[in-house]
Amino acid sequence: MSNENHESLGSIESIELGIIEGFFGQPWSWEERERVCETLASQGYGFYLYAPKADPFLRRRWMEPHPPETSQALTSFGQFCRARGMRFGIGLSPFEAYRNFDQRVRDALAAKLEAFDELGIDDLALLFDDMRGDIPELADRQVEIIHWVKARTSASRVMVCPSYYSDDPVLDRVFGQRPEGYLERLGELLDPAVEVFWTGEEVCSREFSPGHLERVSRQLRRKPLLWDNYPVNDGPRMSQFLHLRGFTGRPVANGDWVSGHGINPALQPTLSCIPALTLAQSYRQGTAYQYGGAFMQAARKVLGAELAEALASDLLIFQDGGLGRLAEDSKQKLIARYKAFNHPGAREIVRWLNGEYTVTGEEVQTQ
């Protein structure tokens, strides 16, 4: 084994990769989640965070308990993950609890934490995204809640997504101007053991650089936990595309400046495994990584050789052209082509071509 390979293998061992099911639109089935876990658990992925936007009992109706059948499914899936060496966690969005953290909110939050403890979660994420944040004492209020929760949960790791989780000015336009020094104040007050999610210079960052991550580490007084919004394809615009190519713009040198790297997958669970596998390979191979070759290797592993070759030949249509540029006769030919394959990945392509994965603006506003 060469020195270069030895060093790159050490990189993947020191960086925990994870799946963050945090997209808008139709959530995965339990069978699909198990299949993703089964595929990625042996490839360097160490945690699965359940936080689909479509689960109302984690978001708009967070004060209400999950239905018994959902709680049972969560318990079973957590056991499935742990049996394969993956931590299991849940992401909770206590909508604007920081505006009035009164006894009613505390009682509801305590009940939620008790329910999560019964599920046996390893990780608990408090997600303050998708909420107004233009109040001066935002960091102070959120830290109060985080520490209150940390003292009462049995989860061995607590994570938090700040209201302003990126440099991207779109967050200020949508959720109000971020308070001056918000990240610095959050980092100053927050228990050093709490992990902080960060999506980079943009909400959907095209790349992460060591220089950027070093700066964020100084602001937060800890290395950020990457919430990487690739290959996610939710929303009215992005759901018109399949994000399939291998990861780029994530150099192995980032490993010195992150506590972990979680990816928000696409609406298509099987197809999401293709880029997910390339991320693990990029950390293993370091500067020797080639995203085109990594894509083909991952596609063959997930889909088999024949279907992988078909996908590669249509990659420009799926990832760059999208449904909006696809003529009806061309679409029907593609549907016929992929219907010929008896494979869940092919069925996901057919469903996408039929518009079954389209996410509406209403879903984004209401989930």
Score class of each variant (00 low, 15 high):
Pro192Met: 07
Val158Pro: 07
Val194Ser: 08
Ala193Phe: 02
Met238Arg: 15
Phe95Thr: 01
Ser29Asn: 00
Ile317Glu: 14
Leu171Ala: 08
Ser156Pro: 04
Pro210Ser: 08
Gly293Gln: 10
Val143Phe: 10
Ile146Cys: 08
Glu4Asp: 13
Glu328His: 15
Arg221Trp: 06
Glu362Arg: 15
Ser42Trp: 13
Asp130Val: 05
Glu207Arg: 06
Thr199Trp: 10
His212Glu: 14
Ser14Phe: 03
Val203Ser: 04
Val203Leu: 13
Glu309Val: 04
Gly10Leu: 09
Asp129Tyr: 11
Ala41Ser: 13
Met238Leu: 15
Arg173Lys: 08
Ile145Ser: 12
Gly120Trp: 12
Ala346Pro: 03
Phe295His: 11
Glu188Asp: 09
Val160Thr: 02
Pro27Gln: 10
Gly321Cys: 13
Met1Phe: 15
Ala54Gln: 12
Phe341Lys: 04
Glu96Asn: 09
Thr199Arg: 00
Leu334Met: 10
Ile145Val: 01
Gly292Ser: 04
Arg237Trp: 15
Gly120His: 08
Pro192Gly: 01
Gln290Gly: 01
Ser42Val: 12
Pro67Ala: 07
Leu311Ala: 08
Phe24His: 15
Ala298Thr: 10
His147Leu: 07
Met63Val: 05
Asn100Ser: 14
Asp117Ser: 15
Ser2Met: 00
Val174Thr: 11
Asp123Ser: 02
Phe95Ala: 02
Glu201His: 09
Ile349His: 11
Tyr230Cys: 08
Gly181Glu: 04
Leu225Trp: 14
Ser14His: 02
Gln365Asp: 06
Asp167Tyr: 11
Leu334Val: 07
Met238Thr: 02
Gly18Ser: 00
Gly324Ile: 07
Ala280Gly: 14
Arg99Ser: 03
Ala193Lys: 03
Pro169Arg: 11
Pro94Phe: 02
Lys223Tyr: 12
Phe116Cys: 05
Met1Thr: 09
Pro269Glu: 12
Lys53Met: 15
Ala155His: 03
Ala155Glu: 03
Val143Ile: 05
Cys161Trp: 01
Gln103Trp: 00
Met238Gln: 06
Phe47Met: 03
Asp102Thr: 00
Trp148Ser: 10
His343Met: 08
Glu202Pro: 02
Ala110Gly: 04
Met63Cys: 05
Glu328Cys: 14
Arg185Ile: 10
Gly22Thr: 02
Ala327Val: 12
Val170Asn: 13
Pro251Ser: 08
Arg61Met: 13
